[in-house]
């Protein structure tokens, strides 16, 4: 907090700074810093964040379906590779080749 107390407002140099904007990293006085969505921001950053937020609130209509499609293709590839690995392993491995030969011990 000392770092803030020793600083001056970016817009009003005679005034003591009370907060540091987490977006632009500048120091601001009581009048210039405002709370927005649980954070203390300067007016410029609030305007910029709001504009960006408005843009994000209306995402391009193909954004999510494209991500979903990309995820599905990625998953399909992952499971396909997994399937190929299972196919490559010999049947004896899947049947437990280490334990299969002395299995007579378990036979009824």
């Amino acid at each position: 907090m000392n770092a803030v107390r020793d600083r001056r407002c970016f817009h009003h140099p005679p005034r003591e700074a009370v907060a540091r904007c987490p977006e632009c990293r500048r120091f601001f006085c009581r009048e210039c810093a405002m709370e927005h969505a649980g954070r203390l921001l300067c007016a410029d950053c609030i305007a910029r964040t709001s504009a960006a937020g408005a843009a994000l609130r209306s995402p391009p209509p193909w954004g999510l379906p494209l991500r979903l499609l990309g995820g599905l293709v990625g998953l399909w590839f992952l499971f396909y590779v997994f399937g190929r690995v299972l196919l490559v392993l010999p049947t004896a491995f899947h049947e437990g080749d280490l334990a299969a030969s002395p299995m007579e011990a378990f036979e009824p």
Partner: peptide, 28 residues
């Protein structure tokens, strides 16, 4: 089913791609 089929199925090679797609959909 996928595990069992891929480790034993005689024609599993042919089904691998389509079964993997089904599994991807089930995951989502």
């Amino acid at each position: 089913y996928f595990w069992s089929d891929m480790s034993r199925g005689a024609q599993a090679h042919d089904r691998c791609a389509s079964a993997a797609l089904g599994l991807a959909a089930l995951f989502v």
